[in-house]
Amino acid sequence: MNDQANLTPAKPAKLDEIDAFIAVLRRVECEKPKPEDVRELRRLLKSNETNWQLAGDMMQQAQRNALNSINFGKSKTLAIESIEEGMQHIRRQLSYATSPMLEKLLIEQVVTAWLRLSICEVKYSHNVSGESSIQQADYWDRALSASQRRYLRAIETLARVRRLKLPALQVNVAQSGAKQLNVASSAASSAALPAVPNDAPNAKGGDAIE
């Protein structure tokens, strides 16, 4: 979150590419997929269209928007710092720095879902105890339930992928204005996803999360 000012916001036009990507994926999901579909999916997954980058950007944009949606009042800087520290703590707990690229993306999803849940909790308690209407209290109640479900789903997905112990994936990541790089998973992910502090542990810590 430290490099927020340099990040490009996610482009909605890219969502068409995601749909095309998903269409190929659906063809491969069956028990006996056509070899050409598998080849096409492999190509799309490793292509320099940087779906990985886009997913990371979208996640960061969602984090920024979520943080901006709170009225912190005078203690804004302190509150944002403490929330960002909470996000970094989760990344460390989930061994972000040493995880393969896919897991990094899933960890970022957990972090985003945690942020959304935390903000919803604050807004819920603020609105339910304040002067809000029944309609508003009901809205926050549903928003809180939805964010709890999303958070649990994100954790489950990460745990499931870690259980499968997939091999590292090599992906081409083109950085804007720079020469294209052909990098292995962990290095690619540091370009695609938010930076983490250098004090992250080297050992994998499993699925532990607060």
């Binding site: 028990e31 896919l102 985003t112």
Partner: peptide, 27 residues
């Protein structure tokens, strides 16, 4: 915010599923 999170989630799910599919898994 929810829409952005859903779009990002859809893409992450697609990338996860694709990674699993090319590693020999099926649904």
């Amino acid at each position: 915010i929810d829409r952005l999170m859903s779009d990002a989630g859809r893409l992450v799910k697609a990338l996860t599923d694709a990674t699993l599919a090319i590693n020999g898994y099926h649904r």
